[in-house]
Design a protein around this nucleic acid. Structure first.
Lengths: 293, 293
DNA sequence: CGCGAGTTTGACCCTCTTCAAAGTTTGTGG
DNA sequence: CCACAAACTTTGAAGAGGGTCAAACTCGCG
């Protein structure tokens, strides 16, 4: 029972409900800027691999930098060496040397570190369009693990391939650098959350951020998104116990803000949730790179 | 009283002391690799600004990449436009546009974010030799603040200057990229700490990391370092209250591991502290960049 | 149909926070 | 060089937020 989350069975939604009562009314300010919608440029004439322009990676890059025929061509070449990985199999192993990078094409993965006492901290989730393992190309030994959550497809990109592509299409290089920097900014945001935000806000914030990222590649909208994460994943990402994540999710659900159930996250009250989590709509929605290249 | 930290006055050092008793004996494994000592190359003949090669920035870079005359020359040029800032005056302001970057020459600073409820999360501390505000050159609006702790001296570097320098001396570019990536790795490590490590371990870990970084620029050794941080800084960095940081520091001090007092951090038992904090000696001591440029 | 992975809930307890107040050090002006 | 204020540190007491342990429940799947 009580799976509908309508709050009839258990009325005490605690702190979250209190917050709603005291803060939400009248604070729903207007959406100043919608998360930038994915703009795929009209197909240029020629030999572009037909599906590339609709690929998550291209969609994401295209939202930063206008892609011409050259860039689309380069992207399609990067997409050649597709590989599949099953859940539980590590893509990048802590301490391994001379890794390639990957571009996620389909599925979800996460990067994490393990402490001596066995605790696991999830640093970030990777979704379609994301780069993966870039730092392991810069350092001799990669400093974290990456593991698929769902079966994934990813394109393997060697160091040389990538540098060569960059040399040919500097605008693409800038866009990728921009994307990588955005990822770093997300890690900082996670640090802020884990360090300072209360459990419920933190959890809500993470899910809102994932939603914003998924929207960039067309995998979600304001109503919600398909989410293969378990509550254990969530727990290790936000630095809580799985038990407490469960309680927090119940509170949020019973407050009528969001439902995390059956592989789907549903935003029952998007604006309310954004207010509650103090989610900055702009931080994943920066204007393009400053650099004119 | 009880300022000597010898544990006579208050014997109950709690969990930390217990850990010492049960774990420390026999676990003091051998130092496999000393933190790489700063190697300043012998002065090449010519017009190099005399003091540059002993500057923190050069020392740090030199520990990644061997610097020739060209690179030293480039570094000395970057050092031209020195500026001073007083504590409390922001160098980089959240949301400001088109910032320059800075190379810290002297003093300490910290970068942080402020939440809606006024909580402050310190993302990292900047010490001599560190780059600062690089991301604000990539994004139109910088996403965090930077504030000096002590009076600082920093060299302002404009976007163009930097890109030009990189074009002239690619090896320097690689070294800088490497350094920036290392900073990002540190943020990840902080996230892991704040998310998973208990208060005492987390605090000890932060101070050990600072020490490792300071040693790279010759500002500390195995016995300790001069530390202008207040316990409030520490608290906002590790995500604890200042009161609890104080208690934790007392525990660590009374366990005979480390003393944080009067602007100085003293490692009373370096090996013991490293074990206690599960500090990975290698992670700031990577081999140089993989890239051959 | 039954197993395993994931979810949900309760009870208890511990870490860390908050509030409050007393010390201590540092900096500044006289 | 002293006096005073401001900033920082230290400690106590009380309580909240979140962890741990344990058990039941639910769901997808072979």
């Amino acid at each position: 029972m009580n799976r509908t989350g309508d709050g009839t069975f258990r009325v005490t939604a605690g702190r979250v409900a209190t917050w709603i009562a005291t803060n939400a009314l009248g604070k729903r300010d207007v959406w100043k800027g919608q998360i930038r919608q994915n703009r795929v440029p009209t197909p240029p004439a020629g030999k572009i691999y037909p599906l590339v322009q609709n690929s998550p990676f291209a969609r994401k890059i295209a939202s930063f930098v206008r892609l011409g025929a050259d860039e689309l061509q380069a992207v399609s070449e990067l997409y050649q060496r597709r590989r599949k990985f099953a859940p539980g199999l590590e893509l990048v192993h802590q301490g391994e040397i001379d890794q390639s990078a990957f571009i996620m094409a389909d599925g979800w993965a996460f990067s994490y570190k393990i402490l001596a006492d066995g605790e696991r901290q999830i640093v970030n989730f990777q979704i379609p369009g994301d780069f993966l393992g870039v730092r392991s190309m810069l350092f001799r030994n990669s400093d974290h693990n990456v593991e698929p959550i769902t079966p994934i497809e990813a394109s393997e990109v060697s160091k040389n391939e990538l540098f060569q592509t960059f040399a040919k299409t500097p605008r693409l290089a800038t866009a990728v650098l921009w994307a990588v920097s955005r990822d770093e900014a997300m890690v900082v945001e996670h640090l802020v959350g884990v360090g300072q935000r209360p459990a419920a806000e933190r959890t809500a914030h993470l899910l809102l951020e994932l939603n914003a990222r998924l929207r960039l590649v067309g995998l979600g909208d304001k109503t919600g998104f398909a989410c293969p994460l378990t509550q254990y994943h969530l727990a290790d990402a936000v630095g809580l116990s799985a038990v407490h994540v469960n309680r927090v999710l119940r509170e949020i659900r019973e407050a009528g803000l969001m439902t995390f159930q059956n592989g789907r996250v549903t935003f029952d009250d998007y604006e309310g949730l954004v207010d509650f989590a103090d989610f900055d709509r702009s931080y994943l929605d920066q204007d393009g790179p400053v650099s004119p290249y």
